[in-house]
Nucleic acid binder design. Sequence first.
RNA 1: CGGGGCGUAGCGCAGCCUGGUAGCGCACCUGGUUCGGGACCAGGGAGUCGGAGGUUCAAAUCCUCUCGCCCCGACCA
Length: 578
Amino acid sequence: MLYSRALIPTVKEAPADAANVSHTLLVRGGYIRKVGAGMYDFLPLGLRVLRKIENIVREEMDRSGAQEILMPALLPAEFFKETGRWDLYGETLFRLKDRKGGEFHLGPTHEEIVTDIARREIRSFRDMPMNLYQIQTKFRDEPRPRGGLLRCREFLMKDAYSFDTSEEAAKESFEKMRQTYCRIFDRLGLTYRIVDADPGAIGGSKSAEFQILADSGEDAIVACDTCDYAANIEIATVKEPPLVDDGEAPEDRGKVHTPKVGSIEDVSAFLKKPKEKFLKSLVYVAGTANDPEDKRGIVLAVVRGDHDVNEIRLARALGVSEVFLANDTDVQKATGAAVGFAGPVGFEGKIVVDRAAAAVKNAVTGANETDYHFTGVNRGRDWDGEIADIRLATDGDPCPNCTGKLKTYRGIEGGHIFILGTKYSAAMGATFTDDKQEKHPIVMGCYGIGISRLVATAIEQHHDADGIRWPVSIAPYHVHIVTVGKDEPVLATAKKLYDDLRASNIDVLWDDRDERPGVKFKDADLLGMPFRVTIGAKALANGNVELKPRTEPDPKKAELVPVADIARVLVERVRAAL
RNA sequence: CGGGGCGUAGCGCAGCCUGGUAGCGCACCUGGUUCGGGACCAGGGAGUCGGAGGUUCAAAUCCUCUCGCCCCGACCA
């Protein structure tokens, strides 16, 4: 592509509404433009990256034996109504009506639709295993779109669905997808961790996330420094020492006046006691927003003062689908005190206590009376509760599987794979006949990759102060030729290199604009093509051009390559990196 | 939805408190000098001040409503 004819509207200043690196660089480099919240134009360069990622995903999915299909984005409500998700999905579902008043929605994910294909087309155990996938635009009315391409209301996703005859066979399909995903993320040049995760609203028995490591990531994950244990912090657990009596003599319970100091931090400083001697008591409302038999209840969750509650684990311990931190009014009602002074002593209602908190002796707790705390509180004597694993893992915690320590990382969820079981097939009557003429529901799995999100994710992981540093496999162009000046030999050399590279299937962008060199270099760094070739009169006088990989940090450092060799050298290096 | 903030030229912003002429930088156009890391000089074009209503002789500025956008939380590829 000739730069002078391309739509690459780079800008010097960061857009005011961009909060993260990838968003800023995508806009500054002229890759994308915002149309509305969570909706973006992909300009030519942005689309090239998107297509390259898409093609790698497609190649690896095809290689795994999966078959590509395409389902509609516009869907009649009946399928989601069949499984109950029409109600469960809530506000996130984009709903619309047709001219006759019929109910429709835009697809946020396609389990129901693909299950409908399966129940119509899969009859026999001989038809499986089968894996169907599509690369398609998804629509979710996110409560809060953010981070440019990282979280959109309209986004491109690869979603795959496996169909098997048994849970064991489904595990094999799951494992095959796990390996396929590894190949995909490896080829994309992304550093990731596979972590245990919460299946969430999609449902299912087993799930793993492919977390692309990035400090700006929304997700927190923990990974063991010794074994291969890794989990999303949402469900991560830690090894807790067994509950043994350490021999500390129980003190008498006391009541202290702690005016206006509610937080653990403040009370800890006020009473000059370490946070580990505190019990943090939080009032939760347990239940399910969309549960028809809405069994809501107030629950007190107790963790050690230096720990935090893991809400997903708490919900699991309670056997409900979700828990919500109670609002101030409910806290008042439940404890009779202002927020900050809740405690388990005398609390009327269910109490769940974390394993670590259960071991604390002579603890400080809220007194369920505004401006007062108890000291010398002991479980068993002063209160008791159901012991469960309900705390958030943190840096340095002992690994649950070995003797190693957990380390925390930030990540961006690039892919998520699930074993769904028969949740959708049973609800929708997708069955097959086995070799004994018996009917069973199909066992399903589903596998997602956020294609458009990966464009941004790659930048979060590959950039420097000057701009993007694309991995070769997904760079919009492999080579960026910068011609300095308009001397005839310079232009002729560039033209020949440009033609030679294109003939070798190397994607090449030639900055042939009538701009000063500084402008061209700045744009080249911003755009981030992996190899830059500078052709100028100076080096050319000695028969050389300059070659600089984008990853070379020194802006002035470039390798001199004879004109006769440059095309071959570039072809070799690009191919080696693919 | 809870909390915070912002809408003024294509982009980034000032002006608003204390009402009276819409301004700066970048980008763009013309001419000239420049030309290896975002040049300089001179001239020029470009704005329903997000929208509606109100107060006032007079509103970008004050008041009310409304729409859009961003950030922090709960949700997710």
